[in-house]
């Protein structure tokens, strides 16, 4: 088991290098530091001196891969690739183009993101599994048919509609909860209700339908027929046998997104004014702050790979038949 985890962790290294190269190509080769400086300082009336100053200040003045002016190893060290990209491997994100420490910002903004994402995931999971189990109980009836139709309708509505509609009805018409904002501590809950609720409603259609398929697949298996043949009540069959076995694919599907919860949701956070990582990324995109976007891309890739690893491990935990080797 340990050996497997170590091997998978080692396998992640070439992938991270690949991600690093992709981001490097995107940010520095297609779009040279000169362009970035011009973009940042404004298109017109920029002197060469200003550009050079801007680049030196942020460490973009070095050559991309190889520095011919430096001696020995330094000719590789004093390059943009080394100072900007390789540092990411030790989670040294450096400073954003506006001069703030990115690592500090991330550690601060992680918590609001989690405050939204975790309850949203848990409540969403609970609600979707309950509905899916109910639909599976009424399978092949009109209830089943219409429930699936409703799921498809819910899936077809844009997430933007849920957010705008929810803000309008709950915040403006009924005035139950504040429209947007964030506050840490126990009183902050009133700010969380609406985004969590909307997140749950927005995801319910597709997840219920997906879980329903999993439950129905499980119900068609031989052991379920055997259990029924023994004369066990349908409720017991559903809860004791079908639910437990169907949880395996459901939970392993959830595990892969667990690490990515840190990243927050771009849309939800920016609509509700939550100072999490999602809105941090959006602000960076809008301000064209490349250092932040680059850091977030790398962080996202790391978290995704951790998610894949966790998925494999969780298979062995929930299903003893799976052996990793």
């Amino acid at each position: 088991m340990i050996a497997y985890i170590v091997r998978r962790a080692l396998y992640a290294i070439p992938i991270l290098i690949g991600v690093n190269i992709i981001t490097f190509l995107l940010f520095f080769v297609v779009n040279t530091p000169d362009d970035m400086a011009r973009m940042f300082l404004g298109q017109k009336h920029v002197t060469e001196v200003q550009i050079e100053d801007w680049k030196t200040e942020r460490g973009y003045h070095n050559p991309l891969f190889y520095n011919a002016d430096a001696e020995g190893l330094d000719s590789f060290k004093e390059t943009i690739f080394y100072t900007k990209s390789l540092r990411l491997f030790v989670f040294d994100f450096g400073r954003s183009d506006s001069g703030r420490d990115i690592s500090f910002d991330i550690s601060q903004r992680m918590w609001p993101s989690l405050a939204i994402a975790v309850p949203q995931l848990l409540i969403g999971l609970l609600v979707a599994i309950t509905f899916a189990l109910l639909i599976a109980f009424f399978r092949a009836t009109y209830i089943d048919y219409w429930a699936v139709v409703i799921c498809v309708v819910l899936m077809s509505i844009s997430s933007l509609f849920y957010i705008i509609g929810g803000q309008f009805v709950m915040g403006k018409l009924l005035r139950v909860v504040p429209i947007s904002g964030f506050e840490s501590g126990i009183f902050g809950i009133k700010f969380l209700i609406l985004p969590v609720l909307i997140g749950v409603v927005g995801g319910i259609g597709s997840s219920t339908r997906w879980y329903r398929t999993i439950f129905l697949e499980e119900m068609n298996k031989d052991y379920v027929r055997t259990v029924r043949a023994k004369g066990i009540a349908e409720q017991t069959v559903l809860f004791r046998h079908v639910l437990r076995n169907a949880l395996i694919p459901i939970l392993t599907g959830v595990v892969v997104i667990l690490p990515l919860l840190f990243m927050g949701s771009l849309i939800t956070e920016s609509f509700f004014g939550i100072p999490g990582l999602g809105s941090y990324t959006i602000d960076a995109i809008n301000r064209q702050d490349f250092a932040i976007v680059r850091s977030m891309v790398f962080l996202g890739a790391v978290l995704y790979i951790i998610g894949l690893l966790l998925t494999d491990i969780s298979y062995t935990v929930v299903d003893p038949r799976v052996r990793l080797g």
């Binding site: 992709i22 064209q288 976007v293």
Partner: peptide, 29 residues
């Protein structure tokens, strides 16, 4: 497999954002 795992591990929205930012710069140039 390496190729698609690598591409897959970059969060989609961020990859799109980065690429579109680059395109904006290119187009204004």
């Amino acid at each position: 497999q390496y190729l698609y795992t690598t591409l897959n591990s970059v969060p989609g929205v961020l990859l799109i954002a980065a690429a579109v930012l680059m395109l904006n710069v290119y187009m204004s140039k």
